[in-house]
């Protein structure tokens, strides 16, 4: 896969797994198109997503539907799949665990800083965005190390949770990401 496509893919997943916002919700079709094109195994899930887009045309209603599922899935209360790596990979099952610190150090090592008053460093979308930047800039070694040490262990725990939630859009996107990052890796 060419470097640009890889970067765009990471970014597309970073887009879908961050908090819903209008510009992303309105460009959902574009993300789906990218997945369809670059990840052949995603065919079934892409159809599910396309159905969603047909039923929920771009606009406020689509955005609210995304919120309706994003909040219990990732954000408060039920938190079916907490988006923070620490919660899954560290003993305390809480945020800001050692994994969070480790990821932050990795960012710094690679020459990136994360806003201290923004999202926590080990948020799923943040890690994916970081991978996109590394891919875009051709920092292949960092990307490989980041994947191995941080991203893949996290994805292998959280993606099944998101899939199993059955939440529209998110479950399908998780399945596609699984296909791309985990299953394709397994197939070598």
């Amino acid at each position: 896969m060419e470097q640009n496509a890889k970067a765009e893919l990471y970014l597309a997943f970073a887009a879908i797994f961050q908090r819903p916002r209008p510009e992303i919700s309105d460009h959902l079709e574009e993300l789906i198109e990218l997945w369809a094109e670059e990840i052949p195994a995603s065919r079934t899930q892409v159809q599910v997503l396309e159905d969603f887009c047909r039923k929920h045309p771009a606009g406020e209603k689509r955005l609210n539907t995304l919120w309706e599922h994003y909040i219990p899935l990732f954000e408060t209360g039920k938190v079916e799949a907490s988006p923070y790596a620490s919660v899954h990979l560290n003993r305390e099952k809480q945020v800001l665990g050692t994994e969070s610190m480790a990821v932050k150090s990795f960012y710094e090592k690679a020459g990136y800083a994360i806003e201290s008053n923004g999202e926590l460093p080990d948020h799923l979308a943040v890690e994916l965005e970081f991978a996109a930047l590394l891919a875009r800039d051709g920092q292949e070694e960092y990307l490989a190390e980041f994947k191995k040490v941080h991203l893949l262990p996290f994805l292998s725990v959280i993606l099944p949770l998101i899939r199993n939630s059955g939440r529209p859009v998110y479950a399908a996107a998780a399945a596609i990401l699984q296909d791309w990052q985990i299953h394709s890796e397994e197939r070598g």
Binding site: A7, E8, L11, A12, A14, A15, Q18, E23, H27, E30, L31, L34, Y107, E108, G111, Y112, A113, I114, E115, G118, E119, A125, V126, E129, F130, A132, L133, R136
Partner: peptide
């Protein structure tokens, strides 16, 4: 996506991406 990735999306910072990161 391209706009976001390369920071030409208007609202995004020059570094590109969703503005989560800055160059250190």
């Amino acid at each position: 996506l391209k706009g976001v990735l390369y920071g030409t999306g208007g609202t995004m910072v020059a570094l590109g991406g969703f503005g989560t990161f800055t160059k250190l």
